[in-house]
């Protein structure tokens, strides 16, 4: 009997990428909240500082969804990958304009995590037919 299954072996490398992305997003989210309220940094309370709070929060949620394995449908997984990429680029640019260099560094780390996640061999690129 032939069945369709996803190949997910080996998943370790991919998971590392996802978790690196999630961790970077988490730290960036905490940092941006701190930046929003810290009066000494020159961007506190500004629309720009609020924008990156929102963008890193969305990034964290999307990365967590992938890391938890909740993005089962292929289309959802692919959509989240694209949105996370755009989020990283946008947040990195916003961090540059806010002169928040730590945020820029975290986005570089997040991007590395994202790259590993999408490029690692464990990524379910195709469905295969298994003979049993």
């Amino acid at each position: 009997m032939a069945t369709l299954t996803e190949t997910r072996q080996p998943a370790a490398v991919q998971d590392y990428g996802t978790w690196l992305l999630t961790l970077a997003a988490l730290v960036a989210f905490v940092l941006t909240i701190y930046n929003y309220f810290d009066r000494s940094n020159g961007i506190h309370g500004t629309e720009g500082a609020l924008l990156v709070v929102v963008s890193t929060a969305l990034m964290l949620i999307a990365a967590a969804v992938i890391a938890a394995g909740w993005a089962r449908p292929r289309w959802l997984h692919g959509l989240l990958d694209v949105l996370i990429f755009l989020d990283i680029v946008g947040t990195c640019f916003a961090g540059y304009l806010l002169e928040s260099w730590v945020l820029v560094g975290l986005m570089v780390i997040a991007f590395i995590g994202w790259l590993v996640h999408v490029a690692a061999p464990g990524r379910p690129r195709a469905l295969v037919v298994e003979e049993q």
Binding site: I43, T46, G48, A94, L97, E99
Partner: peptide, 8 residues
């Protein structure tokens, strides 16, 4: 110049 927190 700074607008919405963004440095130009």
């Amino acid at each position: 110049v700074q607008k919405w927190g963004f440095y130009m």
